[in-house]
Design a protein around this nucleic acid. Structure first.
Lengths: 199, 199
DNA sequence: GCTGCTTCTTACCATTTGGTAAGTAGTTTT
DNA sequence: AAAACTACTTACCAAATGGTAAGAAGCAGC
């Protein structure tokens, strides 16, 4: 799904192009349209890309860095997702259904992103069949990933979920601060620290 | 979102039409196309609509009854979702990405459904803008619902999750056998029985 | 009605996770 | 370098949930 090597592509646009061409055949005209529709954004560590209550106007391609989705609940930050480089993200409820976001999106490493505004996306969708197909399928892929996470919560212990991450996404354990990872796993930092010692 | 009264519509097609018209403006031609594309299926309690390993060829509208998604894991049935009447469902990974299903879908009450075959859906999508918009938005809606479930697992105890269901979908508690509900909540039937006594 | 089967409940104890508090280590600020 | 701050660890006990086993209640077939 995602390239395992980090930062093969120095240039963010090349990264995006490679991502799309791995899956779909793009004409030159399609790629030029896509390229022209995405803006490059570089942000420092801890920069917010979206705050609760705002409308999310952009679909992002994360070229380099690390992003977390979190919300405030019971006086604490609850980390819902973590997104790594070479993948797309947005706040779907806000972006697709035009509702105020109920989560914050924050870069927790300094990051390089490409973003496309909702109004430009409509044009790309209409003029590029490859993009249209891609947009359809990546939503299904994200749905599957979300269901997989849910399934792990339904039938695995916190320790098992941690071991799955350690096995399948060891980078997450290395790069994500323990408190965020614990929250993502649905446990306290103390519990994760204990689990980590046992393993 | 979903009509609270059960079985307002005696006729499944009227139910589907009302569901769509609540949200979108349909021309007569659009509705006739949609109506002609959906087949009616009536199944007895415990009938399988899809089994693990099969390709899911249909998108379903559940007019009456109750359906569960489950998989075998560690020698046990794990219930992933429960779907009630007057809503759509399919196995997204299999239907949209054309992969073998990793879950079973079973009617756990005798049910009345309308279903559309994947090959017919393409035509409807192309010829009905209202359907096309609907299909786009309901996927986002399902994504939001899945994320909400996930969030509850990340930050709520089993008891809290049970109380949320009791509050927001009391029908689920009344109609779903305890063992399925426990599995859906990610706990054992014994634990749910204990929780239920405490409340 | 009885029989057998499944579902649900209850009780017991083990394991997992939470809450509090304290201590250690690493970073940033000054 | 000292001070302040944050992240992480550890220890203690409490609460939540699991596993096993047994019994009670409901349901289907005869």
């Amino acid at each position: 799904m995602r390239r395992t090597e980090r930062c093969i592509m120095r240039n963010a646009y090349n990264g995006l192009k490679a991502f799309l061409e791995e899956r779909y055949k793009l004409t030159n005209a399609e790629w030029e349209l896509i390229r022209a529709s995405f803006d490059k954004v570089e942000v420092a560590k801890n920069t917010f890309l979206l705050e609760e209550g705002q409308h999310c106007e952009y679909l992002y391609y994360l070229h380099e860095g690390l992003v977390r989705f979190f919300r405030w609940e019971d006086g604490e930050e609850k980390t819902q997702y973590l997104t790594f480089e070479d993948y797309f993200f947005t706040q779907q409820e806000s972006f697709f259904l035009r509702r105020p976001s109920n989560v914050n999106i924050q870069a927790i490493e300094s990051s390089v992103l490409l973003r496309i505004h909702e109004k430009d996306l409509t044009r790309v969708r209409q003029q590029s069949p490859a993009w249209s197909q891609f947009a359809f399928e990546i939503r299904a892929e994200v749905q599957v990933a979300t269901e997989t996470l849910l399934r792990d919560f339904q039938s695995r212990t916190a320790k098992e979920r941690y071991l799955i991450i350690l096995d399948q996404q060891p980078e997450m354990v290395r790069r994500v601060p323990l408190k965020y990872l614990a929250s993502f796993l649905g446990i306290t930092p103390e519990s994760l620290s204990r689990i980590r010692k046992e393993v």
